[in-house]
């Protein structure tokens, strides 16, 4: 089974480091190129919207950020399964590296949404179903990151976070459903609906390119984060080894002196 064995090789942290070192420059270059094209398209090619004017350009970062906020959570959940079922150290690392990236993009989504809402709706924030669900997602990211920081031992932290992430993934549809219900119950007086007109191709292309650019960027950041996390664990275990050796050395020295 050559496929399986190559996958197994990749799962070895040292192999992963080698691969990451080779892959990252390409990923970074690809992300930069796509971002350049996407920014050009969204600023100079996409026409202003007939209703929203130039403000619609915020969409080209807002929507990809929202997509990545969800995408990184799915990534974390898949890694959480890897942690709990196969107890694989690389899954722990993938889980940990994904959290801050997902939180950052969710944050970008919230703030750009707010900056878009102010000129369009006349208010920075509406308790609209979508905004509220994203806010809860952001809170869950913050909780996960807080749990990572609270447990010292990386292996134990990974398993605890994995349980929390999976409980969260079961709850996300329930939260979405309940927030939808809640927001139809408290329908605000006059809210500009974003989902009114279908999107025109002249705006769809810049949006797709930007979404792809953000995705490649997030994958590059994730790989870089995983590489850093592996190195951090190495440094940590080496420090522990050194401390142990120094301890033992001090003891034998003390024994010899006695």
């Amino acid at each position: 089974m050559p496929r399986l064995s190559s996958l197994w090789n990749l799962a070895n942290p040292t192999r992963f480091l080698g691969l990451a070192d080779r892959l990252l420059p390409w990923l970074a270059a690809l992300a930069a190129a796509l971002l350049a094209v996407g920014l050009y398209l969204s600023f100079f090619v996409a026409p202003p919207d007939y209703q929203q004017g130039e403000t619609v350009r915020i969409m080209f970062i807002h929507v990809p950020a929202a997509w990545l906020g969800l995408f990184m959570y799915v990534m974390m959940s898949a890694s959480a399964l890897g942690t709990l079922v196969w107890r694989h150290p690389l899954a722990d690392v993938a889980q940990k590296a994904a959290a801050p990236i997902g939180a950052a993009f969710t944050f970008v989504c919230l703030v750009t949404g707010s900056l878009w809402g102010k000129p369009m709706w006349g208010t920075w924030w509406v308790w609209d179903a979508r905004l509220t669900s994203v806010l809860v997602l952001f809170l869950m990211y913050l909780g996960i990151m807080a749990l990572w920081r609270a447990v010292d031992d990386p292996g134990r932290a990974a398993r605890a976070v994995a349980v929390l992430t999976l409980v969260g993934v079961v709850n996300i549809p329930i939260i979405k459903f309940s927030v939808d219900w809640w927001s139809t119950l408290h329908q605000p007086a006059a809210v500009f609906r974003i989902d009114g007109p279908t999107i025109h191709p002249s705006m769809l292309w810049p949006l797709l390119v930007m979404a792809l650019a953000f995705t490649v960027l997030a994958v590059a950041l994730h790989v870089a984060g995983m590489r850093n996390e592996i190195l951090r664990r190495r440094v940590r275990s080496l420090w522990l080894m050194e401390a142990e050796r120094l301890d033992a050395g001090a003891e034998t020295a003390a024994g010899a002196a006695r």
Binding site: T55, I61, H62, T112, L115
Partner: peptide
């Protein structure tokens, strides 16, 4: 609304 776009 240029300010909002630039800020985003």
């Amino acid at each position: 609304h240029a300010g909002f776009i630039i800020a985003s």
